[in-house]
Design a protein around this nucleic acid. Structure first.
Length: 646
RNA sequence: CAGGGUGUAGCUCAGCUUGGUAGAGCGUCUGGUUUGGGACCAGAAGGUCGCAGGUUCAAGUCCUGUCUCCCUGACCA
């Protein structure tokens, strides 16, 4: 079993000390003496950490904090939020701020450990940077503006402005300015697992979007894109490491192509946990395996032509006070999919130029795709300026290309009909019967219109990677994101070294994030039933849940002690429910917490020399299993699911 | 940030319209009876009604302000 590489010493089942401190419980180590643990410095050291390295943890319910509740606070709506509170994993402190109680912390540590092992194996080194970051660092990269209110800021007693780190590109880049001195040091990949702070507009859904959350972030440094030491090689390694991490965590996930977002950079992938309740939409090609998020997804080749026969005259209609395309469509007796939407954009230049993007009424313009199509970054034009230039905002039609100096880009799907409804370039008026070849002959003849994929992809669009196959939509929760940053930060902060040719060269960077606490929540969203959580073994807080019926009976205590010891010897983490509760609540709580294996011991099972065995995934009530082989059974099952990444 | 909602016991909520002794269920504690899927009986503890002003003889209830938390949107690990 690959779990628990450094489990703390357990004596009587209570874990209170780290193995290296030489602390031992002064009780006799027998299991039948609950409540008499006292901790003292021992004159004889504990067994070496080596010999105990693979021993599992034994934890008694009565000696930890697992405040399960029957009714979750009305605040909680998402299953992960509800169950984490009901099962005693977390408690809320403020909006987007939570206590991680012992069960949650154990799971978080297990995720972190998997992350560490895979990152280390991929050649990265762990470090820890401060959460406090001087604001000046952000001024250099202008992210104080880009991040804006998302940045938690505070002022110290001297009036110095400080930010609580939402990520650490600035800090690590400036660190490297003083530490990276030679081209011989590349490549370098550094990571940390740390609490991050983002003043989210709207924190929600428990750990899914907190204002304070645990994140693994890694940053790599290179002189080249290609080659063994290049960014691309490390990026691929990280892609593989992430695949390993989420597989080992037992998650059902997809790696999808993504937009780089405000962090900047050239290429990026998101790792999404697949689940219907996810807030992100991804599009997948069932044939080729292509997957991308909505912002990024390409659309396959679509046939188009300006020459579609007109169906009637161009007619002007009075359409006052109709906000939204749906109302206009209704008034004109048509549907948004038979209308043209002309969005006025401008290039992000010192003296911006006009760009008009035309899509079908039911489609959404994608600014990144417009950028790719025309070669310049664009943004939605400020309404005032657009009006001043002659655009009748709300009633813009493609005909504006004849009267205003601009670049016009049209999506192929906006050409599929011979008769469109669109704006009349006149306040409070629309037209019907708009025909491209008839109305736009001047512009078409002068080659003033560009045709390109400029809209968000949707389910049902042709796949960009397989002919005749259509994209399907899936929902997911983003748990990881990797970026090729390029030189954005190194140039802004002035990170460079002399290369072999003694020339100053900016450093190429990559960055790689995993939402550790979000992963926990996403896992529960993905894997639960009406009764509670269903943990994958690898990140369950414990592997085995022992329900003790009549825990005061000496024979029962002895049997539980022996069984849990034996399980721990095999590296299995055990939670013993030794509360003086009736069986009902114990079984309910076991389902709620959702450990992979439940073992029940009672005077009855002892009589039969057995243990009741039940997997969390079993619907039945569990069945009797011979005592002498039950440990082996647990080992086999846990090994099997953890090796297969489940 | 915009729109909507909320705040009374650890949790879920009633009480507010029409001002007059602070309520219920669950949970907790004590004693007893129970003991394989959230038991039963008897008893007990627990709330400056988010906060600050105001109106009133009297405010959980009416008025003003303020804060909190939640939901819907754009952003993101």
């Amino acid at each position: 079993m690959r779990s628990s590489p450094s489990t703390p010493t357990a004596c009587c089942g209570t874990i209170r000390c780290d193995k290296n401190h030489g602390l031992r419980c002064s009780c006799d180590g027998s299991v039948g003496s609950p409540g008499v643990h006292s901790w003292t410095m021992s004159s004889t050291p504990t067994k070496s950490s080596l010999s105990q390295a693979s021993r599992g943890t034994i934890q008694r319910w009565s000696q930890t904090l697992i405040p399960t509740v029957r009714q979750a606070p009305s605040d909680a709506e998402m299953p992960s939020h509800i169950f984490m509170i009901r099962a005693g994993f977390i408690r809320q402190v403020g909006a987007g701020i939570y206590n991680y109680l012992p069960l949650a912390w154990r799971s978080l540590r297990k995720v972190s450990e998997i992350v560490r092992e895979e990152m280390d194996a991929a050649g990265a080194s762990e470090l820890l940077m401060p959460a406090f970051q001087p604001m000046e660092l952000y001024a250099e990269t202008k992210r104080d503006v880009d991040y804006g209110d998302l940045l938690f800021t505070l002022e110290d007693r001297h009036g110095r402005k400080v930010a609580l780190g939402p990520t650490h590109e600035e800090v690590i880049t400036s660190l490297m300015c003083g530490a990276l001195t030679s081209y011989k040091q590349f490549p370098l990949n550094l990571y940390q697992i740390q609490t991050k702070f983002r003043d989210e507009f709207r924190p929600r859904a428990g750990l899914l979007r907190g204002r304070e959350f645990i994140m693994k972030d890694a940053y790599s440094f290179h002189l080249d894109l290609e080659g063994e030491a290049g960014l691309n090689a490390t990026y691929d390694k990280m892609h593989q490491a992430y695949t390993n991490i989420f597989t080992r965590c037992g998650l059902d996930f997809s790696a999808v192509e993504a937009e780089a977002g405000p962090i900047g950079g050239s290429a990026s992938h998101e790792f999404m946990v697949n689940c219907a309740a996810g807030e992100d939409t991804i599009l997948v090609c069932p044939e080729s395996g292509y997957a991308a998020n909505v912002e990024k997804a390409e659309i396959g080749k679509r046939a188009w032509s300006f020459d579609v026969a007109p169906e009637g005259e161009l007619v002007k209609h009075h359409t006052p006070n109709m906000p939204g395309i749906h109302m206009v469509a209704e008034h004109l007796g048509t549907t948004p999919s038979l209308m043209l939407k002309s969005i006025v954009l401008q290039t992000l230049e010192e003296s911006p130029r006009w760009v008009v993007a035309v899509v079908r009424g039911d489609h959404e313009v994608n600014e990144s795709k417009v950028r790719d199509a025309i070669g310049f970054a664009v943004q939605l034009a400020p309404e005032k300026e657009a009006r001043a230039a002659g655009f009748v905002i709300g009633y813009v039609s493609p005909k504006t290309v004849d009267t205003i100096e601009m670049t016009m880009v049209v999506d192929p799907d906006a050409l599929g009909s011979g008769s469109w409804a669109t704006g009349a370039d006149e306040m409070d008026h629309h037209v019907t019967g708009f025909n491209w070849s008839r109305e736009m002959s001047n512009a078409i003849g002068n080659d003033k219109i560009k045709i390109a994929d400029i809209r968000n992809a949707e389910a049902g669009d042709p796949s960009p990677r397989a002919d005749g196959v259509f994209l399907e939509a899936r929902k997911g929760i983003e748990v990881g994101h990797i970026f090729k940053l390029g030189t954005k930060y190194s140039e802004a902060i002035g990170l460079s070294v002399l290369n072999k040719d003694q020339k100053k060269q900016a450093i190429i960077m990559g960055c790689y994030g995993i939402g550790v606490s979000r992963t926990l929540a996403a896992c529960i969203e993905m894997s639960h039933d009406d009764n509670g959580i269903i943990w994958p073994a690898a990140i369950a807080p414990f592997h085995v849940h022992i329900v003790v019926i009549k825990p005061k009976e000496p024979e029962v205590q002895a049997a539980v002690g022996a069984l849990s010891d034996e399980l721990a010897e095999h590296g299995i983490d055990v939670l013993i429910d030794d509360r003086a509760e009736r069986p009902g609540p114990k079984f309910k709580d076991a389902d709620l917490i959702g450990l992979p294996i439940r073992l029940t011991i009672s005077p009855k099972t002892l009589e039969e020399n057995g243990v009741e065995f039940k997997l969390r995934t079993d619907d039945a009530k569990g069945s009797m299993h011979p005592r002498d082989t039950v440990v082996q059974r647990c080992v086999e099952i846990l090994s099997a699911v953890m090796d297969s990444g489940g």
